[in-house]
Amino acid sequence: MPEILIISGKGGTGKTTLTAAFAHLAFEAGDRPVICDLDVDAPDLHLLLEPSRRVTEEFVSGHEAVIDPGKCEDCGLCAEVCRFDAVLKGGTKGQRHKGTKGAGSGESELSGYWIDPLRCEGCKLCVVQCPAEAIDFPDRMCGHRHLSDTRFGPDTRFGPLVHAQLLPGEENSGRLVNLLRQKAGAMIKEENRSLVLSDGPPGIGCPVISSLSGIDLTVIVTEPTPSGRHDLERIVELCDHFKVPAGVIINKQDLNPDEVAAIDRFCESRGLHQLGRIDYDSKMVEAMVRRQTVTEYTDAGIGEQVRTLWRRIISWAQMSEAA
């Protein structure tokens, strides 16, 4: 069972558009995919696959420190020990947003210490050091995870979608990514499915590392721009670090032939699997506006290019499996 991850380093190169089209093509070929959106921070795949929810669960991870103003003796030790500058004094009710006791809108000045939940990393140091035992340490609700069915009805669906949404400002932890991947793996057995197709997050940090580790194949989507190439080099270094085989797709290939040549040279020098190219074409967005995958929207031009890419990914996956 291959687990294929679509990733890019740089945002906006076309990861989600391509993942959705690949889901369509895998479904069309009878491959029974489990689709997974690992960009839990700004997930967009559901906008194209229009899922209906089967199950939603809360995602609770770690704790946050909260000062009880009734018990606080104003000694300020918590502010001294906090390495995250999360303990603040004064401020208005309006500033003491989300999660903090007494939160709400309002401009009147308050006295005393409070902990900014956006800065608190939940280390517990202030909790154990507070001489008045005035700091609570409740569980932290970080988001929701979902198992859904994608469109086209129960008999003809693309496959189940495993996805999540972090609450705004929460730590983009790898834990949620790992939970989604575990769920996708379980779906393979439970529903006798053959393939996990995952849309990865941008960047090279924690959620990307959690998405990459132990994956069978990574497809990197880049573009022929200085940013695209720079970020490609960093994500390839990360793939090497985790010994994950990587292939490269150049999207918007006709924007700059010199950059395309530079990317090709880089791929050759690093022994990367060159999967192919896609033209710069507003049909990508026209399809998105109609909530369609690009391969549903058009068979010609970029539609045909994306079909070719998927055939190459599948044969690459079969080759790797055989090796």
Partner: peptide, 14 residues
């Protein structure tokens, strides 16, 4: 700022 709306993005704009 970095993309997204989680911890790194909030850190950049706060």
């Amino acid at each position: 700022a970095p993309p997204g709306v989680s911890c790194p993005a909030v850190n950049a704009v706060m």
